[in-house]
Design a binder for these strands. Sequence first.
RNA 1: GGUCCCUUCGUCUAGCGGUCUAGGACGUCGCCCUUUCACGGCGAAAACACGGGUUCGAUUCCCGUAGGGAUCACCA
Length: 484
Amino acid sequence: MGASQVVTRFAPSPTGFLHIGGARTALFNYLFARHHGGKFLLRIEDTDRARSTEPAIAAILDGLTWLDFNWDGEVVYQFARAARHAEVANQLLAAGHAYRCYATAEELDAMRAAQRAAKLPMRYDGRWRDRADWPADQPFVIRLRAPQTGSVTIDDLVQGPVTVANAELDDMVLLRSDGTPTYMLAVVVDDHDMGVTHVIRGDDHLNNAFRQLALIRALEWPEPAYAHIPLIHGADGAKLSKRHGALGVDAYRDAMGMLPEAVENYLLRLGWGHGDDEIISRAEAVAWFDLSAVGRGPSRFDMKKLESVNGHYMRAADDSRLVALISPRVEAGIGRALGAADHDILQRSMAELKKRAPNLNDLASSSLFYLRTRPIPMDDAAQRLLASTPIALLSQARQQFAGLEDWSAATVEAAARALAEASGVKLGQLAQPLRAAVTGATQSPGLFEVVETLGRDETLGRIDDALATMQRAAHPDAHQADVD
RNA sequence: GGUCCCUUCGUCUAGCGGUCUAGGACGUCGCCCUUUCACGGCGAAAACACGGGUUCGAUUCCCGUAGGGAUCACCA
């Protein structure tokens, strides 16, 4: 079955970080290979020595690892294969499928300027195609002797049959004058040598496919199947390029606090669908993925939907995993390292907290109040609420709670309800001030769950703090005397 | 400009000639649940770009128009 095994590859150029569009291309390659029980290879296209960087390579590998798109075998570095690329170019030259071109950059610029002025398509005019009067000691490039008549049709697995006349294509450069290969040559040679059967890549390469096919035919190599997937656009409909603020996947992980499975699920649904399914597991994705269901038009990136999907996976995530993920953020928030007791509190509060956090950042900040040392900071809304609360009500609650036999969400709630009824107020009129006192905010997880997690001493202490502040506000003079 | 590609609610999509008074999701709005915020539940507004064909019948097929995108390097 070896000959029919599917082999895909993801081939990013390390000139920037792994952006969201690249991540989706990787995902589709990964899923297609896994669906067919084939291989998913990774190749770093670092032939542009000036723009390729080590940090970019690291970021790409890091991003793929984070997303759990595991590639098979060793990473192939394209630049290391330059000798093989040159070998193929020379082989083509010897066979007459390629030729030497001595045109200088200035000559080509002039040629294009003339074409532009005459409103003609800008193509290499083949001025060295049939010449053999090669000047000695002059630099030259090797160009493909491409067919000039007829046409080529690619049965693209996503775009359908696409035909281009050979007359539209010119003789592309295979080997530069410095002996290094161009992208067109390198891709074709590497895909062939790596046994790639399905080339799944961005739509921006569709035009390249025709040139590459001409090269493959000259070499008489097997032709891979092509699938050109539409690009991802920004919310404004413009291309989601680096200069338009496209971010690396690390930004989704770090700055935005997304979960990898959420990013994966969102990316999968962007441009692909399986009936009405929205939440799709990795296993389902592998089982269901097929290229024919990939849409043909570009789709816009919707941050709101990503957050929604992320919220879903946050709620589904394991509590201890979330605690581990937010710990660094929490430590930064409270300005100290977390101890065992802190982890314990986070662990116990996670079930409630994760229901209302769309991302890890919000989850981390929403957990801070549990860990702060008294007196805890109070936000404006909480301060205003306490200022309009009768001191006696809060004071009574404090007394009732202090006298409780057992300390649990249920017992505290029962006491609070009893007090509210006895005082003739709605539960909310008592619960909200208590929430403000205990959490420092007017929004939080269920008050009684919070109180149980915090424990009796901490809860009573925080109420005392609030009471003291309220009394100070009510009797500024008495307080003044204390200070002096 | 040449070539190629695309076009269903604001956004992502379902739909592969009649099942469409076009379904789902996010977002928006309303209601419910409720100690707050979320979660959850219920409901509402919201789309087949336009014009011609083909057909008994077009969201679905074909052709134009418009709009959008990609690409035209000794960059990948």
